[in-house]
Design a protein around this nucleic acid. Structure first.
Lengths: 96, 96, 96, 96
DNA sequence: CAAGAATTATGAACCC
DNA sequence: GGGTTCATAATTCTTG
């Protein structure tokens, strides 16, 4: 089930008789799900590591909020950064 | 407050400055930022891996939306249990 | 692109400029910002009113946490119904 | 129920006999809940209005992201704004 | 006042 | 590719 192709239309017994195709697909589905779950766990672990570093930074007296701003700026293309700053300036000036 | 201004009141290492921050603190800041960036890269790589698995699943004829639904349900179950327990706690305390 | 640079190619109104933006556009920008700020103030006031009610409830001997739980449950019911319907849709499409 | 005080310990019938205290409290609880729900509806309506203004702004060619930045800046004390900008500069310079 | 929970805002992914 | 929904990030509020 759950897939658009290769579904034999009948009961589970028939499936086994016709060569275990559905069973193979169930295995494959299970494999997919478990692999994704494994990777998501790793992702979660990394998120925890990052949090730890920010805690450390805070303990060392740094301003975490500013550090996050820095990280965001470094992720952007320099041209994008400048464009945004320019536009912000223009709007601010327009407002007086 | 430690990080809000240059602080060169102490040891010899803090004497060499780089534009408002002691050199050793600049090093530490750089270390923090680079470590976070490294971990975020790994996170991004994992996200890519997950996307690949979904692509593969789609190619194999599975319905990706449903697979995501299954993953969500498997994730939610413990959360649901916990929420139920929280609710029970609340009601018991309210009645106690 | 319209908003990215001053555009004084058109009508007479656009000739008076205020630092990079045509005056009429500056007016419109100001109007947008002030209207949003006004609405956000109202929102904030409502949040305060809600807080007051909870304070009153607490003073009257009610358990605020439980009241919030009740509110959440009353809010969730339609959402739950909708989610169920969505799930049903998904499965029906998968089997169709 | 649900409250910490004024609970008669016996059955509903007793409650009515002892002067309808529990019934009064149920009324009061209902009143609290309904008032909160009413205010939350208003809040939601305001959120919709704000969204509409942003849509209008976008249609008029403004950069909504920048407008949101402006709103955030205007909410902050000028001193806070400057402090943050200064600190950001310091950190950026420290990183080269 | 700091930690944690809850709400809100932003950014990414997906579908049309 | 534009709009919409969903996940993640940030801020706010509450509590110990």
């Amino acid at each position: 089930m759950l897939a658009h192709e290769e579904q034999d239309t009948a009961s589970a017994e028939t499936t086994v008789q016709t060569g275990g195709i559905a069973a193979d697909r169930a295995d494959r589905l299970r494999s997919i799900i478990e692999r994704v779950e494994r990777l998501e766990e790793e992702r979660k672990a990394l998120a925890g590591d990052i949090k730890d570093i920010f805690s450390e930074a805070k303990s060392a007296g740094f301003d975490v909020k500013i550090i996050k701003q820095i990280l965001k700026l470094r992720k952007m293309e320099p041209a994008q950064v400048e464009e945004q700053e320019t536009l912000l300036d223009i709007y601010r000036r327009a407002l007086g």
